[in-house]
Design a protein around this nucleic acid. Structure first.
Length: 886
RNA sequence: GCAGGGGUCGCCAAGUUUGGUCAAAGGCGCUAGGUUGAGGGCCUAGUCCCGUAGUGGGUUCGUGGGUUCAAAUCCCACCCCCUGCACCA
């Protein structure tokens, strides 16, 4: 396809549509799954062009953030998994790899690969507007965005826990960890137990059980350290293995090292809740790598503690402080029920889960605030301890240990002075709801999910210490986080090809204020042209994305638009489509079933890929890509091709009329289907159903095809779905041909031929059955056209909604009363929304044209019901004519 | 736990908003027949049960109730499954 036919510019007086699909993140080539969103968007763009709109569909590349850097580093490190995928699945030559260790070169390489794939797919993109999110011009645009947010008071500062690697000296996401584990951060309480001249620090999820404390557990083999909080001056004991995590959150100095666990054993410490002295016992189950390496012991409510205490023979110390229906002493009961023998028993994990769950759901406090549900007490005790200085808020990696790419254990760092976008702002949310209310979402159900997301959105950290992208304008040492720089970027497309005329230095806040908000005066004509381009194209008429982006990108997209732009420029529509499955399974590295897009195109052709991912299922459903589907499409395309080749002229037989009316019927609902983006329905009607109709048509006409006008319309409707197939036959200009208009059609003609089709298959069926039963082949078939009064009856029944009394009021029908009683039942089920009845005449015409097909079964006679004495003739009905085989 | 989505005739999957063309589309699989010669072909028919030379009857849409002349579709309760819970693209 010619490169420039989709370059779009404002045309005065012509209505426009601006479509965008989430831009790709080029940290690897794209596979067939990526093609779905773009295929849907492109198909839509093409339909809009056929509807006479000036359509802009641009594309760019998102290269901000850490995954790209991580990918380059992994290649540099020779990561086997990554290299295997790149070389063996995507077929990247090994010699290319060294070059890809540079993030910028990697981005360039993959983005070119992706762009090439998109071109091969025939996506109708205006490529002049392409940009990368690390382009200096774009950086300036993002800076402008953040100035706007700041001015609106939506940027705030605070502290924030993040998963952190000391070796990498940076925050880590799942792509930075060994095995791609996503580190989960969890808040716990670290309680201070006075011990000698310092505190033993013990973490817990269940501060409310502190009242049932009997002792402390320390691993006698473990190594401990004494540290001092430089701010408060308080000294704590914690295990050596947890020091990294601790010092990432508190500013501490190590006072004493190399303290062996048995130093504490046998000594006493104090319960901060009530001042009681409790002993310190040894326990091997204490993991010196997690928490603080010191554990508080509540044997009545924690199976581990109970078993360890039992092993020491000190069961009598137990203190029960929570009442749970169905239990005496919960931990003890469960340990006994599960026959747990000692501290090493793996069943203890499960036992712990059960106790925690039951106590949390049904437990009530017996002490402190008696009767308080455990659920509430947990929070209340925590707040009390922290506010009273008896405990610290502390964060741990819940699914730890997680190791970073560099090999060190991931810790939780409390980042001070972190910048946030305050999505929790109430007034801001109100605006977002307003936008959402007016917006159309396809499918409609996704609106609720967007609303829910906006509901719980809160502060979002918007800077990071590393990554490609834009520097944070209020702290040049930080980079803007990658989800925050891809919210209002569609606005940039409207000027991205024009802005290159300016140098980045010229792109001040005022410069953009004029373009996007109309503030101030243009500095020159080019500046003014950008304003014009923006106001022509904006707002975005349709935004296309996957369901995984509802939770973040799409919500931010709405939020940032309503924060920065005036109402008339808010997004108008969001379209969500599902994923692509390979043979029913999710594509994944581990399954090795990733089908690279360009490979797929080479194998099957772009049309087939487009059609497969777009037509196979409902929009939001995952669609399945597999061999039978592809073969089915290919085979039908070949059939259509054959029909097109045979075609010449315009026929005028009943079959020709039938096809024409049927196409008109399809056209009558097409606009609505495009509006709903129900590509599945469109494919079904115009591809699959049409295929069957054409087959019957061709059979009826003995292979003759005279459908110039029909094919003409049909090809235009099909163009967005199968652009290459159509372009080959109609030329490239077909892209802009108007969609055929809907016009009235005669349902009776369609019904007449359809009744004949059904009759044909009924007869084939019957004969088959007769042969099977050894009744021999008939030599004569008599089709009985139902009596006139039966048509009247049908119409009457329909009009009277099945009321027989009203039917009998009609004299001409009343005379058939007896028969009516018999056949009403058969008719009744079809009363409520029957298609139009074919008239006797039309049906006869259809039958006569198809007669030669019926003759293959035997000699064909067409008679009216009145002319036939055969018993079966009486059963003849308008949509189900009787046939007598003899 | 909170939120969202879902359970349909072997499998996948429409239908539910607007109750009646719903024994319930389509695809796969399976069965039978056809295609005069290979090919992960193609075509036709069947595929809940019983009956029948087609139009009949019965029992179905997670489970149990309810509303209605009529429920896969509406209401109530319950069971089960999936996804998300962020600072990461």
């Amino acid at each position: 396809m010619a490169a420039n036919i989709f370059e779009a510019e404002p045309i005065e007086g012509k209505k426009k549509r601006f479509l965008t699909a989430a831009f790709p993140y080029p940290n690897s080539p794209q596979h067939i799954g990526h093609a779905r969103t773009y295929s849907v968007a492109d198909t839509y763009a093409r339909y809009l062009r056929h509807l006479g709109y000036n359509v802009l569909f641009p594309m760019a590349f998102h290269v901000t953030g850490t995954p790209i850097i991580a990918m380059a580093q992994r290649i540099a490190e020779g990561d086997k998994g990554v290299i295997d995928v790149l070389v063996n699945i995507y077929g990247i030559p090994k010699e290319k790899l060294p070059e890809l260790t540079d993030p910028k070169k990697l981005v360039l390489y993959f983005s070119q690969e992706i762009e090439q794939g998109m071109k091969e797919m025939g996506f109708s993109i205006d490529w002049r507007r392409k940009f990368y999110t690390f382009d200096p011009h774009f950086n300036k645009f993002i800076e402008w965005q953040f100035h706007k947010l700041k001015k609106a008071g939506l940027l705030v500062k605070g502290s924030h826990p993040v998963a952190w690697s000391l070796k990498l000296n940076s925050a880590v996401g799942s792509h930075d960890t060994k095995g791609d584990v996503d580190p989960e951060i969890e808040e716990v309480v670290a309680i201070k137990f006075p011990f000698e001249d310092a505190y033993l620090l013990a973490t817990t999820y269940r501060p409310e059980t502190l009242f049932g404390l009997t002792n402390m557990w320390i691993n006698p083999e473990g190594e401990y350290v004494k540290v001092r909080d430089k701010n408060s001056g308080e000294p704590y004991y914690i295990s050596r293995g947890t020091l990294d995590n601790f010092s990432a959150q508190l500013d501490v100095e190590v006072v004493q090292e190399g303290i062996k666990g048995d130093y504490f054993i046998g000594k006493q410490c104090k319960n901060p809740a009530n001042g009681e002295e409790v002993p310190i016992f040894p326990a091997t189950f204490v993991d010196v790598e997690s928490g603080t390496g010191i554990v508080m012991s509540v044997p009545a409510h924690a199976p581990f503690d109970y078993v360890a205490l039992r092993d020491l023979g000190k069961e009598d110390m137990i203190k029960k402080i929570i009442d749970v229906p169905g239990y005496d002493i919960p931990a003890k009961d469960i340990v006994e029920e599960m026959h747990i023998i000692n501290q090493q028993d793996p069943k203890l994990e499960q036992a712990t889960k059960r106790v925690y769950k039951d106590e949390n759901m049904k437990g009530k406090m017996l002490v402190w605030k008696e009767g308080m549900p455990v659920k509430e007490a947990k929070e209340a005790v925590k707040e009390w301890l922290i506010n009273d200085g008896k405990a610290l808020r502390y964060y741990i990696i819940a699914n730890g240990p997680v190791y970073s790419r560099a090999g060190d254990k991931v810790v939780v760092k409390l980042v001070k002075d972190q910048w946030f976008i305050n999505y929790g702002d109430k007034q801001w949310k109100e605006k977002a709801y307003k936008c959402l209310d007016r917006m159309k979402t396809i499918p409609p159900e996704t609106k609720q999910e967007l609303r829910n997301t906006i509901d719980w959105l809160d502060r979002k950290a918007c800077t990071r210490s590393r990554g490609l992208g834009t520097k944070f304008p209020f702290d040049e040492g930080q980079m803007i986080e990658s989800l925050s720089d891809s919210t209002i970027y569609p606005a940039f497309y409207t000027i991205s090809h024009l802005i290159k005329e300016f140098s980045p230095e010229e792109l001040t806040v005022e410069f953009f204020d004029y373009i996007f908000l109309g503030k101030g005066e243009p500095i020159n004509e080019k500046h003014e042209a950008m304003r014009k381009s923006f106001t022509y194209w904006y707002p975005v008429d349709s935004r296309h994305s996957g369901p995984d982006l509802i939770r973040n990108h799409l919500s931010f997209y709405i939020m940032n638009h309503v924060a920065i732009f005036p109402e008339e420029l808010w997004p108008k529509q969001i379209v969500i489509n599902g994923f692509v499955l390979m043979n029913g399974k999710k594509m994944s590295k581990s399954l090795g079933n990733i089908l690279p897009l360009r490979k797929a195109i080479k194998e099957h052709g772009a049309d087939i890929i487009r059609f497969s991912v777009v037509s196979g299922s409902d929009l939001l459903q995952d669609t399945n890509f597999n061999r039978p589907l592809v073969e089915g499409i290919k085979q039908r395309l070949a059939f259509f091709d054959d029909m097109l080749k045979k075609n010449s002229g315009n026929g005028n037989s009943f079959a020709d009329k039938w096809i024409r009316e049927s196409v008109k019927a399809k056209l009558s609902t097409l606009l609505d289907e495009i509006e709903r983006l129900d590509l599945r329905e469109i494919s079904k009607k115009w591809f699959y159903d049409f295929y069957h109709e054409l087959k019957w048509y061709s059979d009826v006409k003995n292979g003759k095809v005279e459908l110039d006008d029909v094919f003409d319309k049909w090809l235009i409707v099909l163009e967005p779905l199968l652009p290459f197939f159509v372009a080959e036959r109609k030329g490239e200009k077909a892209v802009f041909e108007p969609l055929p208009k809907a016009e009235p059609y005669d349902e009776r003609v369609i019904a007449a031929m359809n009744v004949a089709r059904e009759l044909y298959s009924d007869i084939a069926n019957l004969i088959h059955m007769m042969e099977e039963k050894g009744k021999g082949k008939p030599t004569k078939l008599t089709v009985v056209i139902p009596a006139v009064w039966k048509y009247e009856l049908f119409e009457k029944l329909k009009a009277e909604k099945g009321n027989l009394k009203a039917v009998y009021a009609d004299e001409s029908l009343a005379q058939h009363k007896e028969k009516i009683a018999r056949i009403t039942k058969a008719l009744k089920s079809k009363l409520y929304s029957i298609p139009a009845l074919p008239t006797r005449e039309l049906f006869k015409q259809a039958l006569e044209e198809a007669a030669h097909l019926f003759t293959t079964f035997g000699e064909l006679h067409i008679v009216s019901e009145g002319e036939c004495q055969h018993e079966k003739a009486k059963a003849s009905l308008p949509l189900k004519p009787a046939v007598i085989l003899e």
